[in-house]
């Protein structure tokens, strides 16, 4: 029942937003077409901006995989990650995610390309990517902006949130897709 609901949300979320936002824009009398085109320009910038970090991460993880080093690591870690139903390959994503948004994007792309977007691994890293943030980066820019040096419990709290998000992603992906 709940799984059906989750799947329905996945199916209807985009059509709903594609209808609701322009409809609201029309009702409030803004130029929806011009606004759309204006915003769409940023799509190109976003895609191009991630190229450098994507190259960096895809090359290093690609070398790590092709050499056989990744297989050795997976063999060593599998007994631990299997306990929560996480394929050992996905663990690399869990480590990179709080550190580097571009790096996580690289790992996600590599796993999706290697295993397929509709494999369990492909789905799991997709959910992880969307449900957590680059904690170190967020803290650095916001505290940096107001010159705060003593950040107190913000880092541990952020990392706890990442941990919970990642474990939940593993559990929910297994429940919904397996």
């Amino acid at each position: 029942m709940i799984i059906d609901l989750i799947n329905d949300i996945s199916r209807y979320a985009i059509p709903f937003i594609l209808l609701f936002i322009p409809l609201y824009g029309i009702l409030i009398k803004i130029k929806v077409y011009e606004s759309f085109v204006e915003g769409a320009k940023e799509g190109f910038d976003t895609a191009v901006r991630i190229i450098p970090s994507l190259v960096a991460m895809l090359v290093s993880i690609g070398v790590f995989r092709a050499s056989g080093a990744l297989d050795l690591l997976i063999e060593a870690l599998a007994p631990i990650t299997n306990l929560i139903g996480m394929p050992a390959e996905v663990l690399s994503m869990a480590f990179i995610r709080p550190l580097s948004g571009g790096g996580a994007m690289g790992i996600m792309s590599e796993l999706i390309t290697t295993h397929g977007p509709d494999s369990l691994i492909g789905r799991m890293v997709s959910v992880m990517m969307g449900s957590t943030e680059t904690t170190f980066y967020v803290l650095a820019i916001y505290f940096g902006a107001v010159s705060i040096k003593k950040t107190r419990h913000s880092l541990p709290a952020g990392l706890i949130a990442d941990f919970v998000g990642i474990v939940t992603a593993v559990i929910v992906t297994n429940l919904v897709f397996n």
């Binding site: 937003i17 594609l18 936002i21 322009p22 609201y24 824009g25 803004i30 929806v32 606004s35 759309f36 085109v37 204006e38 915003g39 769409a40 320009k41 940023e42 799509g43 190109f44 976003t46 895609a47 191009v48 991630i50 190229i51 994507l54 190259v55 895809l58 090359v59 993880i61 690609g62 070398v63 690289g106 792309s109 590599e110 390309t113």
Partner: peptide, 25 residues
């Protein structure tokens, strides 16, 4: 994989443009 990075990011442009267009509204 260096080449793959370009393929991936170019593939992103369409969907990102669609999404950011809607969000601009």
């Amino acid at each position: 994989n260096a080449e793959l990075a370009i393929t991936i990011s170019l593939g992103l442009i369409g969907v990102m443009a669609l999404w950011l267009g809607i969000m601009k509204i």
